[in-house]
């Protein structure tokens, strides 16, 4: 990851059911300034597809999704 896509915020939604991780991301992203890069940690596989779909719909940027040990890290950049 380059400097401008390195996460500065972590939303730990592990253990939450769908659509919990997405909702947690939205709650957090609303409060952060443009340019913030957030990592959403999720154990819910549905959210791993849901979050990028939401990101695309609202015009933010999906930096990437990484499979970790027992959870996923979905990284998003707030661009507007």
């Amino acid at each position: 990851m380059t400097e401008d896509t390195k996460s500065s915020e972590v939303v730990d939604a592990r253990g939450m059911y769908c659509p919990g991780p997405l909702m947690e991301l939205i709650k957090t992203i609303q409060l952060k300034p443009v340019g913030t890069v957030l990592s959403v940690l999720s154990t819910d596989e549905g959210s791993v597809k849901d979050i990028p779909a939401w990101i695309q719909k609202v015009g933010q940027v999906h930096v990437g999704t990484e499979k970790k040990d027992g959870y996923w890290d979905v990284t998003v950049k707030k661009v507007k």
Partner: peptide, 11 residues
Amino acid sequence: AMMASVASVSG
């Protein structure tokens, strides 16, 4: 309710 709330947060 789940569909409605996700639609709502999606603008």
